[in-house]
Design a protein around this nucleic acid. Structure first.
Lengths: 234, 234
DNA sequence: CGACAAGGGTTGTCAGACAACTTCGGGCGT
DNA sequence: ACGCCCGAAGTTGTCTGACAACCCTTGTCG
């Protein structure tokens, strides 16, 4: 289980780089839950960095619940059921299969969010969704503002569920991760695509306006099916 | 924005405690995205700890994507759309409203997982679900094994989706967080409850066996509705 | 007014030390 | 011969101090 010495000097801070490398090794399945990982000293030697850097990298992994440490004993791989967060390895999203799988999870949550929004939205929340839709229509589809308007539409719908966990999840998976996908895979953003997207958004909005949860759910499914196809074609 | 001096000497490591305190402050809305947080020196003074401890705590928050730092400038609150993980503040789960909201999100995902499992499961994956169900029937409902068997049933279903993101999410929200809820709120675990739960599980299993996604979806909804009622009654 | 330099402030990294704990091996006693 | 206790070695947790690399603000000069 010797990884070999690695010297890292990239733009990202060292703890971030090292945590990423370790997380990828962990994800590759080389360790079983409960297995001991290399000691701090060993990691220092391997990455040619100070102990502080190693500890900061380990702190990152601890925050995710990937590892746990025991004073005097060492660092151990945590059990999958002991995770402290749901986190998608962003470098995996360059793989189309992984990206589509993530979209599938997103769709499960956002379809439910749309249905709940149709049921629960307040007049103010609806106004905000309408405003977000208008902003999307106005924005240039290739601009940062266009991207932000697209994301905001989804987040506003999640807000109308009245459930903060939906908001957090949609912000993460529809915002942050979606941004990664756009960067890595390059979602097609042309005027024609925007017209189609705007129509899909409009159908979702109409169902939420009409307080029709099942139509909202189906419209959201249709929209993400459209996203899937646009990403598959690029 | 002075938080006052705090001395921490609990069982958990200091960086973990401090990261928790800071995360709660951030969640309370005292900072807006882009706002500068206290400097490392200020946090050292506030918590009466060394700089290394402060940096490790900050590393935890960075891993979550809650904060980002800029050399020479300071530490800043990240935008919600820049989160790097989905993470539920576990201390919030003592609040019944928050706990039920989290269950709602869990239900959205697990209902979809059940439907996908009904569509996609392989004979081997079905065997594993059957085995998990059998283990649940055999286990004492108040034992650790009983809890583990309950969780395993859900995770096995997620595995049958063939989508690793569903597995990770269900392990997190149905495993780790569900454990927190049981600890904090004390889910009722009596023989009578186990009989009902087992029947609910059996309905899900039957639908997956029969490759009937809509029935699997409905059965999962029914099961989590049952969980909700059992938690509401406790 | 713009550009550059200097000073102060902030994060990133390194090195060394000690505290608090775990683990393992050896010695001693029954 | 076996079990228990103690000491040594190993490991993580915390502290301290130093320097590097950067940012920001202010002042001076062209």
């Amino acid at each position: 289980m010797d990884r070999g010495a690695i010297v890292i000097r990239g733009p990202a801070p060292l703890p971030e780089e090292i945590a990423g490398i370790l997380a990828r090794e962990i994800a590759s399945g080389v360790y079983d839950p409960g297995d001991q990982l290399p000691t701090e000293q060993a990691l220092m030697g391997r990455f040619k960095v100070s102990r502080a850097v190693v500890r900061e990298a380990i702190s990152r992994l601890k925050s995710d619940g990937l590892v746990r440490s025991a004073r005097g004993s060492g660092l151990f791989l945590a059990h999958p059921l002991d995770r402290r967060s749901f986190k998608v390895a962003t470098d995996l999203l360059a793989d189309r299969t992984e990206m589509l799988a993530m979209l599938e999870l997103r769709e499960a949550v956002e379809a439910e969010a749309a249905a709940l929004a149709a049921t629960r939205r307040t007049p103010l929340q609806l106004e905000r969704i309408v405003a977000a839709h208008a902003a999307f229509l106005e924005a240039d589809e290739r601009s940062e503002a266009g991207v932000a308007a697209d994301v905001a539409f989804h987040v506003r719908i999640a807000e109308a569920t009245g459930n903060g966990h939906f908001v957090s999840f949609v912000a993460y998976i529809g915002g942050s991760l979606a941004k990664v996908i756009r960067t890595v895979l390059g979602e097609v953003r042309t005027p024609a695509v925007k017209v189609v997207t705007a129509a899909e958004h409009a159908r979702i909005l109409a169902a939420i306006t009409a307080r029709d949860p099942e139509t909202a759910r189906a419209a959201l499914h249709g929209h993400l099916e459209g996203v899937r196809q646009r990403l598959a074609g690029s």
